[in-house]
Simulated assay, not measured.
Amino acid sequence: MDWYIGNEWTDATRGLHKKVLNLNLQLHCVEKPLAISTLIFTVNKSCANLGDRPSKYLANNDESQHEMEMGTAVTPIDCYLELLMQQFIAGETSACSIKTKSGDTLQFELKLELIVINTQIETLKGAELHKLALQYKENGVAMYKTYPKFAFDYFVRAAKLLITYKPFDKLDSKIEGIEGSELETLFVQVQTNIAACMLQEKRYEHVIYHTDFVETQEDPSEKSLYRRALAYYHMQEFEKAQLTIERVPNYEKKREFTKLLENIATSWKSSKANYKQVVQRMFS
């Protein structure tokens, strides 16, 4: 496979690039890591321009070998490393780079030594899929405050896994090893987390879409109700926002909800006054 030497791969959107330097095929097997994979790789050269950016794998200055389990990264650099490693063939050595938003270019050299585990998502049973989706959700929660866009990506990945098992009440627990209600509970949590990300992006209609489940739940979480009410408030759907808040038990004693209700009342009153002025001008 001499033709493979010098081969390049680029993800311009994320600023990722790799160029193949060498290929030592193991047992003549051409295999790339999948989204569910455990692998052994070596950092052949220390990373240039890493600075104080956190990374589980690139922080050491010396040549080092690591075990990587896909889907466990909780820093941007390590998330990008996972994406890069999925473009490697076992036995491949490549020069890699990550271009940051600040204009710096991280440069390093990696070798994929061995793929220990490689699993197709389609082969997972419900219990295994739940475990993976839960891991993605927890990674997203860990990254949310500092790296919200990466958190959003994890939440979406979790939702895509879980949605393949809808409708959850049709799941055969004896075959899948888990009750459908557990998958549904996790799906609702993930949807609520996606709604939080959508609020940050001011994508209020998407917040309403991702919290639509509250309309069919008897006792939805306060987080989901608050985020839905806040989205209605920003969309100037004041009555819907108020009715959503009023579904929360003892909302009058909860500062976050009472403050939002005050804002709703003030904005609603102002909106009615503005509407009245517009009508008066139309017929004056």
Rank of each mutant, 00 (worst) to 15 (best):
T100A: 01
N250L: 10
V74L: 01
T211L: 11
T216M: 09
V279L: 14
I115E: 03
A12E: 14
M1F: 12
S94W: 04
K170M: 05
M1L: 13
F41A: 05
F152T: 08
E205T: 14
A90N: 09
M85L: 15
D172P: 06
T119D: 00
I163M: 10
I208Q: 11
E67Y: 05
T105Y: 00
G180N: 08
E256C: 04
V207N: 08
K18Y: 02
K56M: 02
E69V: 11
I5H: 11
A229R: 04
N61A: 08
F168D: 03
A73H: 02
L58A: 02
Q191M: 15
S173P: 07
T13R: 12
Q26S: 10
N7A: 13
E201D: 12
T244Q: 09
N263E: 13
D11V: 05
T42D: 09
R14P: 00
Q120M: 05
D11I: 04
V20H: 09
E182C: 08
Y80L: 00
Q191G: 06
G6N: 10
E67C: 07
H234M: 10
K137A: 02
W268T: 08
L129H: 02
S270A: 15
L106T: 01
S97V: 01
H130G: 01
S102A: 12
Q189D: 15
A59V: 09
N274Q: 14
E239P: 00
I77P: 02
V30N: 11
T266Q: 15
H28Y: 10
A142N: 07
F238L: 07
K166V: 04
E205R: 14
E63L: 09
N118Q: 09
L161E: 05
K276L: 07
L112M: 06
R228K: 15
M198A: 12
T266A: 14
L161Y: 09
E82N: 03
T164W: 02
Y165W: 10
Q135G: 02
E67A: 04
R157V: 00
Q280S: 10
T93L: 07
W3K: 13
G126Y: 02
Q189N: 15
G177Q: 06
T216E: 11
L27K: 15
A273S: 12
T13N: 11
E256G: 02
N22L: 09
G103V: 01
K269F: 07
P220E: 10
